[in-house]
């Protein structure tokens, strides 16, 4: 099993941390993982992306030219990465702010209204977790319990009261697909 995933959007949308949570979950599931971010000023308001590879065999390159799954959060990223999804692969995107929807017919495309769900849940911080839920529904590479373990370990204790809201957001994302 090997899953090559790109997550791309604006800086500040939680792209890198979503990748990190996914990679941590992979670690707790005993998989090999790599997490390769775009870095630098891009993190602050520009476009940001992260490549996550999860595999049960050693991973050679952390830098890829095509992906099994793309999670796309803005138009620039859609324009850049739609063509890089492998035939038969999965493209998840939030239609919020998307003017030109994806057009490919050889991949499975799932619009996920994550921004609307975020607004409905009145918690801007869980936006990326909704998308992570959608991703995990379509790509059950890691267990949701592994995700929560990773999250618990990554968060300082004073933030542990936020864990249920995150779990709820993941479940919401799973329903949205």
């Amino acid at each position: 099993m090997k899953k090559e995933i790109i997550i791309a959007g604006f800086g500040g949308q939680g792209v890198l941390s979503m990748g990190k949570i996914l990679a941590s979950a992979g670690l707790y599931d005993g998989l090999e993982v790599t997490w390769m971010p775009s870095y630098g000023p891009e993190q602050r308001g520009g476009t940001a992306n992260v490549t996550v590879v999860l595999s049960d065999t050693p991973i050679s390159s952390p830098v890829l030219d095509s992906y099994d799954t793309a999670v796309i959060l803005n138009q620039q990223s859609l324009d850049k990465f739609e063509q890089k999804v492998k035939p038969g692969g999965v493209l998840i995107y939030d239609p919020y702010g998307i003017h030109h929807a994806p057009t490919r017919t050889d991949i499975s495309i799932y619009p996920v209204e994550a921004m609307e769900a975020t607004i409905a849940l009145k918690n801007a911080k869980i936006y990326n977790m909704i998308l992570l839920g959608a991703l995990l529904k379509l790509n059950p590479v890691v267990d949701i319990d592994a995700v929560m373990t990773g999250l618990k370990k990554a968060l300082p204790e004073r933030h542990h009261h936020l864990l249920p809201a995150n779990r709820e957001a993941i479940m919401r994302g799973m329903e949205l697909v």
Partner: peptide
């Protein structure tokens, strides 16, 4: 790359 990437 190897500075910024995360792995095990």
């Amino acid at each position: 790359i190897v500075g910024q990437m995360m792995e095990k």
